[in-house]
Design a protein around this nucleic acid. Sequence first.
RNA 1: GGGAAAUUAGCUCAGUUGGUUCAGAGCACCUGCCUUACAAGCAGGGGGUCACAGGUUCGAAUCCUGUAUUUCCCA
Length: 875
Amino acid sequence: MEIPKTYEPIKAEEKWYSYWMNKGYFHSEPDEREAYTVVIPPPNVTGVLHMGHMLNNTIQDVLVRRARMLGKNACWVPGTDHASIATEAKVVQKLRTEGIKKSDLSREEFLKHAFVWKDKHGGIILEQLKKLGCSCDWERTGFTMDPEYSESVIDVFMDLYKKGKIYRSVRMVNWDPEALTAVSDEEVNHKEVNSKLFYVRYKVAGSDDQWLTIATTRPETILGDSAICINPNDARFKHLHGKQAIVPIANRTIPIILDEYVDMEFGTGCLKVTPAHDVNDYELGKKFDLETIDILNDNGTLNANGLHYEGKDRFEVRKAIEKELYDKGYLVKTEDHINKVGFSERTDAVIEPKLSLQWFVSMKELAQPALDAVMNGDIQFHPDKFKNTYRHWMENVKDWCISRQLWWGHRIPAWYFGTGANDYVVAKTVEEAIVLVKEKAGLTVSASDLKQDEDVLDTWFSSWLWPISMFNGLTRPGNEEIKYYYPTNDLVTAPEIMFFWVARMIIAGYEYLGEIPFKNVYYTGIVRDKLGRKMSKSLGNSPDPIELIEKYGADGVRVGILISSPAGNDLPFDTSQCEQGRNFTNKVWNAFRLIDAWEVRDIEQPKSSAKAIEWFEAKFNKTLTEINDQFDKFRISEALMSIYKLVWDDFCSWYLEMIKPGYEQPIDSKTLETTKVFFEKLLKLMQPFTPFIAEEIWHLIRERAEGDDIILAPWPVVDSVNETVLANFKFAEEVIINIRNIRKNNNIANKVKMDLFVKKNNEIDLSFDSVISKMGNLTQLEYVKEKVANSNSFIVDSNEYYIPFGDTIDLVAEKAKMQEELNYTKGFLQSIQKKLQNEKFMAGAPEQVVLSERKKESDALNKIAILEEKLAEMV
RNA sequence: GGGAAAUUAGCUCAGUUGGUUCAGAGCACCUGCCUUACAAGCAGGGGGUCACAGGUUCGAAUCCUGUAUUUCCCA
């Protein structure tokens, strides 16, 4: 059968992925083996695969596949997140295109639409992961709104409520007027924008023409003012103490209060206080018991408190009120001003601070063990620089607002039986609620008297249970699976969600299982384009991962994405990296073609082949040690690079060339067999990174028994490393490179055989001579006592090598080269001798360093002598 | 404004407790090769005042101080 000259990934990928699936290799059940567990960071259920997912999931697959080869019971749990804000936004948008408004639907109707959408689009991303080769246990695929998962979310809410960790409170929250929901501090992006500072004057009450001037960036909130605040130490305003002021346009009289909070330097030193629309003002309002006047509707338009501006958007009002203030003589001046404005991460709408009744988790106590676990190393971060960021946040953790004004998600299990702030109970079902109402208020109510809270829980309030609830650790405490798989081993995620997700999983782990949820956290970077911009849909700078896979093969893309992606660093991605990956798979493919084409004969093994085998054995073991170490340190891309070079440079460029029989010559069976074994070992190392081609060649290189698949083959074991062989080869390598250089410099074709004469001045190892002969294409390698005249020459380790001239030679160039080498060596010698003559060096440096300097000195002296002699002869 | 980290070849990064004339890899680049495994290749080669300025040391990319620039986190 003809084997194609280039590797064709598409067919192999389909074939092997379904083969692995049919064999159930990805599936895990608890057994006696050590468990190795990874839970996937659940992508949004309606999400589409982007480059960030590619990076993240390739790393996970590498770790999982290697663990499998190390004999562990590897379990990679996939699933999706309901992502309440993002998904609801998509459903709302889709309905809008059909002419349906969310406000026209009941909650039940809307959820029906949402589930239809989820069933249609949900899980696309998981199918895409299969194309990448991800070896997830698909039988365990989960979803944060699955019934049992949801139950655990509600259980946790009730449990924390009972423990007094969940409370309901009026708080200033970040309000997204577009999504109509509160968002957490972490979901607000602060950006600097150019705006205006408006100077507005307020009349002092009871005066004829006494005014005070405030500065504000948001003049529309004047309508919500309930005080003017000045610093009691501000000498400029002593006359205002105890007075009142009149709000322009609204014509309300408000007190002038004194507080040191006011920055005398900023603006005019007079601060308008709007408790409903600014966090700091809210605090002042509480302190001075001020009236709270909310002027905004939830959608960002003004309400009745906005007087004649009612129904208009806040930005529109800002312009209009500027004009009105000016026309009526209240506007003193405006200035350009740069300030930071919060934008919603999801909708990019300007966030409004808004007072509302929300549900909170108090975090301080919960966070303590989670902070300790990372600081004392029970949980390792890779790279560990992220520990600092983590500590900073955890030490200053704020309470977590967990209610969201949405329908898509887990509905808060609170039931209201009245309108009072405290007229509610928290219960799993309405029946339980009825009983609790009786207990709490002594009221006998029926189901229809109770009204469940309209809000749903923050998505992270369900995903923080992911490593526990994917094994039903809360609904079926102590079950076999949670005992076996938990704590999980490695978590691979982005540093952006360290607080949203990682920290909270650790908190939940301690609170509910008394244990860490994972041992290692590997932080990936952000995938950027060549210009350093973050890849995003709106910029259109992100390649379609599926197209990449079709073009370069999944293995090629996996290599491309990992080849330059150290942990925690951003990955500047360019498709040329996939090309490199694709080229690598092709190289391996051709190595296989070469071996496969050899005709085996029962002949004697050439000496050079025996030496080559000895060397590669040593090289392999040495590199494997390094690779294992790199894996232990989570230096994934370095491990890949080591494998890449071991395969390409050491195996293909050196080893295969050393054992390659002449054209149409057979190979001896011993060498062929050993070579196949080497190749198989290399394929094993490649398997985590390039699983498809590894499996493909694994089955082509040899007949395999049922179940003898590389995905389950044992990871190679390190054997002792023969350092002597490695050193001797290095010497031979240098000789060979020198021979090649002479060929190139003199335009001697590779097929032209040459003679090599060696004047041995030093005791050297001759064991690789057969290899030198073969690789140098020499007719003979002869040892001589005297220099060989009319030759190209070079020196390795004080030994002189001569290749007699063919027809022509550039004597001048040859001499110049030698002179240059001599100069360099002399300079080198000088620096060494200077060091050796330095008494302080001799006194301070360790013996080993001194010894190595002495050796360098004698080597240099030798070399100089030879060079000078040769130069003298060339005249 | 407060905190953290970074700055080594054109690009992306290594560089272990200071010790081979001021240093490595991959890609890119240059030169020569269609040498029957692979031109998605082979062979060879060039390229760095290790951000800047001081200091400690016999010796600094590595330790200390300051400056500049960048990134991230928090307000």
